[in-house]
């Protein structure tokens, strides 16, 4: 009976088999993740038994501290302030970086001329930008935003610029046979070509921005997560440091899986090749 069914619709059978396989793979990877987490927690627990709490607090203690932390109203204020700084710096960096990258790619002479500037900015450490920002802007919002901007902007610029070099000259020639204007060629051929590169640059820039904002905040802010981290370190509240770290990791994972992955899947559906 089942042989006959197989003979009748091999495509449906193959599809079903593929789905069963992918569900099994998903289950296996979920089990692995849980196992890994459990091992880390157990090791952490045993390591904390004979260690002072200010060096390595136990998992239970960190859990309690974390629960206390997130029920405090100031937690959400700090989280919001830090996220706001990252976002402002990132958005400005995305706009400026994309525009500069496009101009540098669209006109080779400008690209060649500005290339050293990009290389130099890329080699300067975020800490140096933070120190400069402190000198120039003092304890203000501009300090943290500037550090995020200087870190994120060259990453986006470089990727967009690289993207413009992948533009298919044949497609531009095609557009010219239709008498398309340069600005339309920019929008209809350059932009779609660089979008994947822009996206990977933006993802990198956001991750870096979210990390360097803490450096800027520990050095030059009176609010935000970085400021709280420094306070906790000064008072040797190691459990607080752990609690904040866990919060940040959770936040970045949420952004990655709840925001970036779905957007990417939607934007680049055209690249999805039929299942093997």
């Amino acid at each position: 009976m089942s042989d006959i069914d197989h003979g009748r619709d091999p495509a449906a059978t193959a599809a079903l088999e593929r789905r069963t396989q992918s569900i099994a793979a998903l289950r296996r990877s979920a089990v692995n993740r849980i196992l890994l987490t459990a091992i880390v927690l157990i090791l952490w627990y045993f390591a904390s038994l004979n260690t002072a709490a200010f060096v390595l607090p136990s998992p239970q203690r960190v859990a309690e501290t974390w629960m206390n932390l997130i029920t405090r109203p100031s937690f959400w204020d700090d989280l919001g302030i830090t996220l706001g700084r990252v976002l402002v710096g990132f958005v400005v960096a995305a706009v400026v970086g994309s525009a500069l990258g496009l101009i540098m790619g669209f006109d080779r002479r400008i690209g060649d001329f500005l290339e050293p500037v990009v290389i130099v900015i890329n080699t300067v450490s975020s800490v140096i930008w933070a120190i400069f920002a402190l000198i120039w802007f003092g304890l203000s919002e501009a300090t943290t935003v500037f550090v995020v901007f200087m870190t994120a902007m060259p990453l986006i610029l470089t990727n967009v610029w690289k993207g413009t070099q992948q533009v298919d000259a044949g497609l531009v020639e095609l557009a010219r046979t239709f008498r398309m204007s340069r600005s339309r060629i920019l929008f209809k051929i350059y932009l779609p070509t660089i979008l994947p590169e822009f996206f990977s640059g933006a993802r990198l820039a956001f991750g870096f921005g979210a990390r360097v904002v803490l450096i800027a905040e520990t050095l030059g802010a009176t609010s935000g997560i970085g400021y709280r981290l420094r306070q906790a370190a000064d008072l040797v509240q190691t459990d607080q440091v752990f609690a904040w770290t866990i919060t940040l990791v959770a936040l970045m994972l949420t952004v990655e899986f709840a925001v970036l992955k779905p957007i990417e899947a939607r934007l680049f559906a055209w690249r999805r090749v039929a299942a093997p």
Partner: peptide, 12 residues
């Protein structure tokens, strides 16, 4: 209109 050796379709 011009038709080229390659189809030159926009993949997206």
């Amino acid at each position: 209109s011009v038709m080229f050796q390659e189809d030159r379709l926009l993949p997206w």
